[in-house]
Design a protein around this nucleic acid. Sequence first.
DNA 1: ACAGGCTCCTGCAGGC
DNA 2: TGCCTGCAGGAGCCTG
Length: 281
Amino acid sequence: MPELPEVETIARGVDARVRGDRILQVWFGSHREPFKNSPARQAKGLEDRVVLGVERIGKHIVVQLGLAATRHSSKSLPPAGQWVVHLGMTGRLLVTTPEAPVAPHTHARLTLASGRELRFVDPRRFGRLESRDLKRQKPFTAPGADPLLVDSTSFVALFRGRRLSIKAALLNQSLLSGVGNIYADESLFRAGIRPRRQAGRLTRVELDKLRQALLDVLQHAIRLGGSSVSDYVDAEGVRGFFQLEHRVYQRTGEPCLTCGTPVRRILLAGRSTHYCPHCQH
DNA sequence: ACAGGCTCCTGCAGGC
DNA sequence: TGCCTGCAGGAGCCTG
C-alpha cells in the first residue's frame, strides 16, 4: 500500500500520539507471517519499553525504544531497541482506544500506559514486523539513499552504467529507498521521461529534472497526507488526498492533463506502468 | 547485472 | 445470484 509519503504521514502521526508513552503489554494474533523474529522475542523487546520516537526510514517505520528507567535520566541516552514495521501492500498502523472495534486481520495490539492502543492491521500479510535488540544488533538502516535527502551528484551516480529501465531503477530499494509504483510513474511523467528508458543512458540534465520532480511530488504528497488509492489511512484513520493530484497513475485511456493524448499502460518490471506517449520521451 | 516470471496473501471490481 | 479473471501501494527468490 504505502510508499514514502504514506509511510512518512503514518510515522509522523504515530510519533505525535505515542512518543513518551510506555508499552505495557503486547498481543500478537498470528504465529506465521508477518514476524521476522518470533512473536515471543518481539514481545520481550517491546514490553515495558518507552517510545523515544517514531520515524520513517525508507518505506519502514522505526519505533525507537528505551528502557523504562531512561525516562528519569538523560534524554540523550541512545535507544535500547527498535521495532521495525514494514507495511507491505495493505498494512496499517493505527493509534486507537482499547474499545475501538478490532478490524479483521489485526496482527498486533500494543497496550500503552496512556490508555491508548497501537495496532497493526494487514489483510494480505505482505507486511513485516521485526524487533531489534541494539545491544546485539545494529540499528536498522535503509539499503538505499533517501529521495528527500539525496544530492544531485549522488543521485546521478546511482544510475551510472545501469542497463535496467529507469522505472525499475526507481523501484529498486537498494538504490533509492521509499519510491514505489505511484511515485515512480508520477515523477517520470513530471520529468518528461519514458519509463522504459535505460537508466544509465539518461543525461545529467534529465536526471537532475527527475530528482527535482521526485522531490516535488513526494513533498507535495506528504503535505496532502499521501495517496488513498483504496484503503490507505493515516495513524488516526484519515485518508490522504494526493490521489487527486495523480496525472498518470491509474488514468489509463484518460486524456493527458497536458496534451490530451490518452494515457498508456504497459507492464514493466512486473508492475503496471502509466505514461503519456506524447509528453514523455 | 539484469530481465522476467513466480510467489507470498486477501479483497474487490467487472464480465458473463 | 454465483463464478471466473485480473488487478492491487511490495519485495524476495529462482532461472536464463
